[in-house]
Each structure stands twice: as structure tokens, then as C-alpha cells.
Design a protein around this nucleic acid. Structure first.
Length: 389
DNA sequence: CATACGTGGGC
DNA sequence: TGCCCAAGTAT
């Protein structure tokens, strides 16, 4: 940000400065936000706006039960609200409290997480529940610091739980907050840098209401996210509906979409995988499919999957020669992950022969009717349902 | 500090 | 289509 811009912004905020605090001509917009009454103004407006216009009625709102708040926060990591809506009640119905989750089988947890992505979240969730039960008597720590020591709970999730459940005076800094605050203060630092992240968090802390009640911290925290999610939109912000529009430096500059400054570029490499779909009659009326467990590390770690090969040739080599001609190629499925663009080529082999060789693949037969109880990657579940009769 | 880790949706 | 992004964390 240029000094000239900073001065012009600072002067536009004079109306919000205290009566006897003349603006230093060298004051930057960033410094203006450190003025004592600006945080007060911001917090008051945000809290009032949240109560009037923020989101309410989401399944995880209206509770201070750390278990429920924690579950929602973990599900919502890098995941949109609309996606979580169908998972959260189902998970909660199956595991209503931390004790139920701690006692669960890991495979059952994965099955309920299937399709939600970032499966290490589910493993950490399960481990975390076991730690909370074994080491904390089933009670979550009540401070952000204590929460952050648990598996799968980082700074953002810890702050959210502590603020929502206990009114701790601590700011979340997630994607919404990054967007809202970088615009509000016209921060153009590269947020990929730890130093910039740290500064953003410091400024977020400085904006917090001074001595908030738990209710105020809840509304403030929720308001920050709601503002980012419903008003301070990425590509087309609705500044006319913003409760802090007149405080926003980016709005004054005219192009709020310029923030946050994006720097990282994501490289996605293309890969083709060949999936062996072995299908045979089960003992009862339905058919069964051969699934194996994915390795503990890497993509879809710990989930069940059709056997994966890196070429058609290597897949065929795994089969007894007399069965190779029975393989039928199905329509490929494209699936993109964060760092990879996958092209999945399913090869179906339907046979009633005893397939002792399959044991060499290190998997198990699964009744097609029981697939819902297995943790499958989304495209594999899609594929299996798409091509089942 | 960089990278890996899923999936669905917006534009 | 392709790229970016979403209530991030672990390594």
C-alpha cells in the first residue's frame, strides 16, 4: 500500500477517531485501525449485524456443547457448509457424544466420513475422542491452548471452539476472516508467509471486543465468518450490505476483490489409474466386489478401494492368463484432487470362478448391499453405483 | 517453510 | 475447461 493511499484512507476515517485525537499526517490506514475506538466500532457493528442478518439455525449453532461444536468445526475445515449439512446430523446420530465416538471402530468412523474428503480429519477425530476420554475424563479442555494440543485441532479450530463454547477472547483466522480483514485493512502482504499470517492474527486480536460476554464472543466470531460467507464474497462482494463498509479501506480504494492477494499457484499433475473391479456371486442373492484397503499414507489412506494399478498391463499381469480376455473396460471417470487430476479406468471382470488368486491382492469380498457401511473414496462409490445393474 | 491431503461449487 | 476456493492440520 502506498503512503499516499494510506494517508487518504486515514483522513477518511477521522470521523471515527476520538474527539481530541488529531490524525498525524503520516498515519497510515493500518495505524488508523489501531486507534482505540475503531475496534469498538467494528466489534459493535459486527455483533449487531450478526444478530440481525447473520446465519442462524445451522445444525451446529445454538449449542455450547464442545463435542458438537468440535465435530462441526472439523467437518467444516476446508469444506463448505452445504456439504457438511448432510454429514453432520448423520454422524451425530450415530455417535451422539465423545464416549460413543471413542468406542467406535475406526472403519465405522471412516464409513460415515466417506465422501467428505480429507480423511485424516476422520482418523484424528477418532483419536482425539479417545484422548479426551482417556486423559480428560470425557471433557474437552476449555482453553484454546489446551484444545490445540489435541489431534486434528489446530489454531483456527481451537479458537473457534473456545470462543463459541466458553467465550474466550480469541480470534479465529480462517478463509473468511482472511478475506474480511485483508479488505478491511487493505493488507496486501503475502499470506503464504508465516510473518504475514502472524500479523493478520495480531490485528484480528486487536479488533476483538474488549471484555465480551460469551454471547458477544459467539456473535462476533459467527459474524466474522458470516460476513465473509454472505457479504464479503470472493469475486462479487455485496458492499452495500456490509455493516462496516465505511471502515473498509479496500472498499474506499474501489476494488475490494483485489484482496486477499493471491500468490501461490497450484500445480496439478495428471495421472491415470486402472481399477480392477472383480465381481462375483455372493452366498446369497446379491453380488460381491473385491475391495482392498488403501495404504496408511497417501491418497485415500485407510479407505477401501478397488485394486489400483498404474497401467492396464500391470493390472492384467495380476490376473491368471485364462481370465484376461474376460476383462471389460468401462467408461473412465475423471476426478480431481488438490494436487492431482486423476483419470480412473475401471476394468470389470465378472466371473463365478473361485478366485483364489484374489487373495494375493490382499483384500476382501464385500457384499454390494453392504457397500454403504464401507469407507470408500467418492469417485469409487460413484463408479460402483453407476455401473451396477 | 513447503507440501500433501478430498471434494464440490463458482465463474 | 481450468482455475480458484472453502469454518485447516500435520509433517
Amino acid at each position: 500500500m502506498s503512503a499516499a493511499l494510506g494517508r487518504s484512507q486515514a483522513s477518511s476515517h477521522r470521523g471515527l477517531q476520538g474527539e481530541g485525537t488529531p490524525m498525524n499526517p503520516c498515519t497510515t490506514a493500518a495505524e488508523a485501525f489501531r486507534a482505540p475506538d475503531l475496534p469498538l466500532t467494528f466489534a459493535r457493528r459486527l455483533i449487531d449485524w450478526q444478530r440481525q442478518s447473520g446465519r442462524s439455525g445451522l445444525p451446529w449453532q445454538g449449542t455450547r456443547d464442545p463435542y458438537r461444536v468440535w465435530l462441526s468445526e472439523v467437518m467444516l475445515q476446508q469444506t463448505q457448509v452445504s456439504t457438511v449439512l448432510s454429514y453432520y446430523p448423520r454422524f451425530l446420530a450415530r455417535f451422539p457424544d465423545v464416549f460413543a465416538l471413542a468406542e467406535a471402530q475406526a472403519d465405522d468412523v471412516m464409513a460415515l466420513w466417506s465422501g467428505l474428503g480429507y480423511y485424516s480429519r476422520a482418523r484424528n477425530l477418532h483419536r482425539c475422542a479417545q484422548v479426551v476420554v482417556a486423559q480428560h475424563g470425557g471433557l474437552f479442555p476449555d482453553s484454546a491452548q489446551g484444545l490445540e494440543a489435541l489431534p486434528g485441532i489446530g489454531a483456527s479450530t481451537a479458537a473457534a471452539i473456545a470462543a463459541f463454547c466458553h467465550g474466550e477472547r480469541i480470534s479465529i483466522v480462517d478463509g473468511n476472516v482472511r478475506r474480511v480483514l485483508t479488505r478491511l485493512m487493505a493488507m496486501d502482504a503475502d499470506l503464504a508467509l508465516a510473518s504475514a499470517q502472524h500479523e493478520l492474527w495480531q490485528r484480528a486480536q486487536a479488533l476483538l471486543p474488549e471484555t465480551p460476554s460469551t454471547e458477544d464472543m459467539t456473535a462476533y466470531t459467527q459474524g466474522l465468518m458470516d460476513l465473509g460467507a454472505t457479504v464479503c464474497l470472493r469475486s462479487r462482494p455485496l458492499c452495500g450490505r456490509c455493516p462496516v463498509q465505511d471502515l473498509c479501506v479496500a472498499h474506499a480504494q474501489g476494488v475490494p476483490q483485489n484482496y486477499p492477494v493471491k500468490t501461490r499457484l497450484l500445480k496439478r499433475r495428471h495421472e491415470s489409474w486402472w481399477l480392477l473391479w472383480l465381481r462375483g456371486p455372493a452366498t446369497d442373492a446379491s453380488d460381491r466386489v473385491w475391495l482392498e484397503r488403501r495404504p496408511a499414507r497417501g491418497i485415500w489412506a485407510g479407505l477401501y478401494c478397488l485394486p489400483v494399478f498404474d497401467s492396464e498391463a500391470s493390472l492384467l499381469e495380476a490376473l491368471p492368463p485364462h481370465l484376461r480376455s474376460g476383462v471389460r473396460a468401462l467408461e473412465p471417470v475423471s476426478h480431481s484432487l488438490t494436487h492431482r487430476e486423476l483419470r480412473l479406468h475401471p476394468l470389470l471382470l465378472e466371473t463365478s470362478e473361485a478366485m483364489a488368486f484374489a487373495a494375493d491382492l490382499g483384500g476382501q469380498w464385500v457384499d454390494e448391499a453392504a457397500l454403504a457401511q464401507y469407507g470408500l473414496p467418492a469417485p469409487v462409490r460413484l463408479l460402483l453405483s453407476r455401473d451396477l445393474p
